[in-house]
Nucleic acid binder design. Structure first.
Lengths: 204, 204
DNA sequence: ATAAAAACTTGCAGAGCGTGCAAGTTTCCT
DNA sequence: AGGAAACTTGCACGCTCTGCAAGTTTTTAT
């Protein structure tokens, strides 16, 4: 059944992807224009030409349509983390595991621009974005603890995961804020390097 | 009018504090027992012997009754941050500014235990807790940028603030998870020290 | 090709959250 | 004592999200 992933998706799956995309982009566009509070699920559904009930078959909340559910990436992330050779320091291992995610985002950068712009204008969503990271953290913590061979009550893995998440998040927001002169990967790399150096004050 | 703060609060303010406390503790106890989803605002209000409408005069959401609104502390935090001598590195300055908050929490540790236990059991709330920190971050970023004398588009202040927030949060959760052998201040100190050292892998 | 099975969409009803408004009641101030 | 200010409460309302019971479309097997 490993070959099954290569077979072209049927009409049903194509339609599903289509409506899903229609819903996210409709949601993003409407919220970008009118603000989070002034857009109802009904309006989004109408713009995507489906019923409001169908909206909730795709997303469990209005926010999720905007932010996306990175659960799919999470598996991949963990797999890459496990696959990283044991000699690599934990922080660096996380950065390496993130590269694939980063590249995907860089490829979809127009979508992510819009998404991050919407997030910046609606702080309530920043919450959700961070929360997504926070869920990923939980899984990462265990993997890191294994990697380092420390007892589960040791605070270090949780600290590393949380800090890595914070570094990634700031790189993301910076990427969205800057005119897109620099690729996301560079900004992530820079942030992780600064953390690994102990965050010394820069000389002005 | 600076003396006014010393005058004893009138009956009205006393009652307000009372109902507010009644609402938070009722909310925490009920949610601790039945879970976040299975407790309604009406039940909380009833337990505190006020109308449901009054609940919303005190808190803007169910979550807020559980998490609390740290806006009050925020001002104090910023003031302390500004007051820290310029020679101190940014990361350490943030830790010092946090000491007062930490002491308050240590004093109210029973309340915070319950609160953090509730948060751990209801991940949706972790979101809110982090969001509170995220809001504090925004304010801290500017102060740090001033302190370091770097241009506002420089990414460093945002990174330091985010990482400091992450370190504080992990210390907090660890404090709640451990049998309370160690004071919160120690755990915060330890986390910040590890960050300042660049988060090297511990030797197993 | 056709019929049964599976998956998807939709409307409807309903519980809950959160807000604005217009009373009533309590506390405060003089 | 009496008016002003603050607080509480009920009511109506819009919105989010869920479960259920249809209908419709796609898939699968014959």
């Amino acid at each position: 059944m490993t070959v099954a992933e290569q077979t072209a998706p049927g009409r049903r799956d194509r339609k599903k992807r289509l409506t899903r995309d229609a819903l996210t982009t409709a949601a993003l566009r409407l919220v970008a224009e009118h603000g989070l509070e002034n857009v109802t699920v009904e309006q989004i559904s109408e713009a995507a030409d489906v019923s409001a009930r169908t909206f909730f078959n795709y997303f469990s909340s209005k926010d999720e349509a905007l932010i996306g559910n990175p659960a799919a990436d999470r598996e991949l992330l963990l797999a890459r983390l496990v696959a990283t050779p044991p000699g690599v320091p934990a922080l660096e291992a996380i950065r390496l595991a993130l590269t694939e995610t980063v590249e995907t985002m860089q490829a979809d950068r127009e979508l992510w621009r819009l998404r991050l712009a919407v997030i910046e204008r609606n702080p309530a969503l920043l919450t959700r974005l961070i929360a997504g990271n926070a869920e990923a953290e939980r899984a990462i913590v265990e993997t890191i603890a294994d990697r380092l061979g420390v007892p589960p009550d040791h605070g270090h893995p949780a600290l590393v995961a949380a800090v890595a998440g914070a570094a990634f998040r700031t790189a993301l927001l910076r990427w969205a804020a800057e005119a897109d002169t620099r690729p996301l990967g560079d900004l992530v790399h820079e942030a992780f390097a600064a953390v690994a150096a102990g965050l010394p004050d820069p000389r002005p």
